[in-house]
């Protein structure tokens, strides 16, 4: 995915010379999954479509991968859909927000991923919102699930995603006057090389990487 990764010993492709690694490229990050999704996922998407007529406009992609359902959702519709998921589809709990930074995903660099749990139906789904680095605004879900408060603060702290409407969006893990957002891919890990018997072992971020 990253262009700056360097191959090992000048090999192309995966560098797997043995031929029995057994890995095939997975199209998980591209395109929508076709119906039927299997399991309870058809049921959940059907229920959501019935309860929310604008489904096709709000949901950009439906991805089912490794037995998990991800709804890629437009940020303008996030709060409306979340309310329906909570009240009509019984997703009572939001298990948190995790950010992911994809610098190569132009104009959708920052992703916020919400993990929802329905206790009533014993189901899990995931919402994913992507925004551009230049406009990192996502509406806050604190009004829907109060527990999102700290999770959104953490994602702001680590990625710089601004959750509009959050009651107090401040840093939570890093010091208040910290510069930058550490979990972004353009934020260096730091560290210093260690000398041992004349050779220098570089810091982890400068060590050789493999494709």
């Amino acid at each position: 995915m990253s262009d700056d990764q360097k191959g090992m010993f000048g090999t192309e492709g995966t560098g797997d010379t043995s031929g029995y690694g057994g890995l095939v490229p997975s199209p998980a990050n591209a395109g929508s999954t076709e119906r039927p999704y299997g399991g309870y996922f058809d049921q959940v998407t059907d229920d959501l479509e019935r309860a929310y007529p604008d489904f096709s406009d709000a949901i950009e992609r439906v991805v089912v991968d490794r037995g998990e359902l991800t709804l890629h959702i437009k940020r303008e519709r996030l709060v409306e859909v979340s309310l329906i998921l909570r009240d009509r589809l019984k997703f009572e709990m939001s298990m948190g927000v995790s950010g992911v930074h994809y610098p190569e995903d132009t104009n959708r660099e920052l992703h916020a991923v919400y993990h929802l749990l329905s206790i009533t139906n014993n189901q899990r789904i995931r919402l994913e919102v992507s925004v551009a680095d230049t406009d990192p605004h996502i509406p806050s879900l604190v009004e829907v699930w109060g527990g999102s408060n700290w999770n959104e603060r953490e994602t702001f702290d680590m990625f710089g995603i601004i959750f509009d409407g959050h009651p107090g969006l401040t840093r939570i893990l890093m010091p208040d006057d910290w510069q930058g957002h550490p979990q972004r891919k353009d934020y260096a890990l730091g560290g210093i090389g260690v000398e041992y018997k004349g050779a220098v072992i570089p810091p982890p971020s400068d060590r050789r990487t493999y494709k």
Binding site: S26, N29, D65
Partner: peptide
């Protein structure tokens, strides 16, 4: 080892 593209929870 390599791990195929994707995300799980």
């Amino acid at each position: 080892f390599r791990v195929p593209v994707g995300q799980v929870y």
